[in-house]
Structures are given as C-alpha cells and as structure tokens.
Design a protein around this nucleic acid. Structure first.
Lengths: 160, 160
DNA sequence: AGTGAAACGACCGTAGA
DNA sequence: TCTACGGTCGTTTCACT
C-alpha cells in the first residue's frame, strides 16, 4: 500500500545527457517504444532498452500509472501540519498506514510532521482529523490547510 | 515544464472493477503488456487497450516516468508555507514558473500558499528563498519546513 | 556499452456480435 | 463495449565489436 522507501545511495548517480534525454521522453509518455526513443536520442533500440532497465532496476526511475484524484471524486485535499512529542518516527509510521494520507514527511520547523490527505468530502476529512490523527500517541496539535487550487504538480524531479 | 493542469470534471468518473484492476496493474508496472493485463483481469488484449486509451485520453490516468530526486543528488527538500496579500492566483503562477518548486498549491488557513522545493544543497535553498520567493510581489512572510525523512509517497490517488 | 539481424511477441485496425 | 484475426511494428536474444 505504501510505496517502497527508496534506497537513497550515499553518492548521487550521475546521468549523462543521453540518459536524461531518455527520461525526458518517458516523462511525456511512459509507453513510448524504445525504438522511437532511440530515434529521438540517437541510439539503437537495444541500447535504449538496456539503459531504461538499469535506470529502473537501480531505482532512479520508475514507469507507473498516476491517477487524478479530482476526476475520481476525491475533491477535498489538504496539507496537515502536526506538532508532536516523543519519537516522531514511530508516529510517522502510524500515519503512513492511513490510506487517506498519500504523503507523510518528517520535518524540521514549527511542525514536526506534515501529511497530505485526499478525501471524498469534508466529513471524511473531519473524521480523519478527529478520530484517527489527533488521538494518535504523541500528537500535540494539528493545523489544516485545505487546498483551494493545485497550481503545479511535477513528478519529474531531478531532471529539470 | 509545468505539468498541465488537470481538467477537473464536475461529475466524477465512475470506474468499474475491471478498470480499477487495470489501473492497479499499471501502477506496479506501467509498461506491462496489454495481453498480460488482459490475462490478469479477464479481458482480451484489444479491450484492455481500448480502456487504457480512454483512461489516458480522459485524463483520469497517465503513464509516466517518475524519478527519485535523492538518488540524483537533490538531497535537500522542504515545504514552504507562504503568507501573502493581493491576488494569490497571480503569485501562484509566478511560483509555478520556478523550476526548483515541484509543487505549488493555493490553500486556506494560516498560509495562503504552500510550495515544495527540491534542491541540491542548502545554499540553493537559501538563495531561492531570499532572492526568488520572498521578494515576489504580494509575499508577506514565509516559513520553511526542511524535510528530515520522507515516510510515505503515493502517486496512486483515488484508487486506494 | 554499443550494433545488427532474425525469431518471437505485442500492438493496431477492422469486422462482426 | 467486447472478441477475433491478420498485418505491421516492437522487443528479445545472440553473436560480434
């Protein structure tokens, strides 16, 4: 249910321009054929396939389906800032188990954790906050930032 | 550069169990063959292909490459809460143009906007905050929440 | 790491229920 | 909206560089 934690290597992977170009192609269309990509980046089909395989196996890139919550009726989204005490790592694990939360991060600042929630309606959000977040051990207080408009969303980190 | 804003239809799309099953297959491997998916969900290759085409053309789903910023040397991430005045929609557009920001959202609450930043190092983050965010017209103050650990990240909204 | 070629399998268009 | 099928194109494997 939770996406596998990424194996953050101590040394960053260096991508050459060709691999970056391949990734850019796949960021537009993850099903584009290796032959087409090869034509675009100046490489044979087999070479493209090998690079894609290495990139996915090393965890640098993954080709997946991403869905739009709005179109599926999940029209309420919010960011929740959480002030907490005790071991916040344990709390983070508990939060990660909540399916309505698609994003959980431990932070430094006036919030110790932040989590993004995707809900169908306000009741679901209220219920989640009161019954399943605020009563978790260690939670001191929460602050909710309801989304009014999602302006930018970019899955394509690290290649800009 | 910025992902296209999603066309949020007024009425939510209803997916039957078969389409949900197809999406689940593609969330694991976006390049899985239609024939294989068909075997898994009990449909012919052509039927799967048509459904995938409809799902992608309607914007409910997209199959794309997603990369891991950590592995590519972008080791500093943070959420920035922004208090602002004036037309926050204009400000949101300006923020969306900043490549280091991968996520920009207008919110209700003690922050008017929130943005996620992906950087290579602290200097880049400091420079971004001071030289390119705090001096934007309308920005009153910002609050930065540096990421300590990304606990959960789920691209697969709406199908949980 | 890369190319090229041949066998295999996937994909696409069309026809029909 | 599904299945069936044939032509075309993509993918896989392998020998070679």
């Amino acid at each position: 249910m939770t996406n596998a934690p990424r194996s953050a290597s101590s040394r960053p992977v260096h991508l050459d321009d060709v691999s970056k170009a391949i990734i850019e192609q796949l960021q537009v269309d993850g099903r584009r054929s290796y032959a087409d990509i090869g034509k675009a980046v100046g490489l044979s089909e087999a070479a493209v396939r090998q690079r894609v395989q290495r990139l996915t196996e090393s965890g640098v890139m993954q080709i997946v389906a991403v869905t739009d919550p709005m179109q599926l009726g999940f029209t309420r989204q919010a960011m929740i800032g959480i002030r907490a005490g005790g071991d916040t790592r344990e709390l983070a694990e508990r939060l990660a188990e909540i399916p309505e939360l698609d994003y959980v991060v431990l932070t430094a600042g006036s919030f110790d954790l932040m989590a993004e929630v995707v809900c169908e309606n306000d009741e679901e959000l209220i219920n989640l906050l009161n019954s399943r977040i605020r009563n978790l051990p260690g939670v001191h207080s929460t602050e909710t930032f309801v989304y009014l408009k999602l302006q930018k969303q970019f899955y394509n980190w690290g290649t800009r």
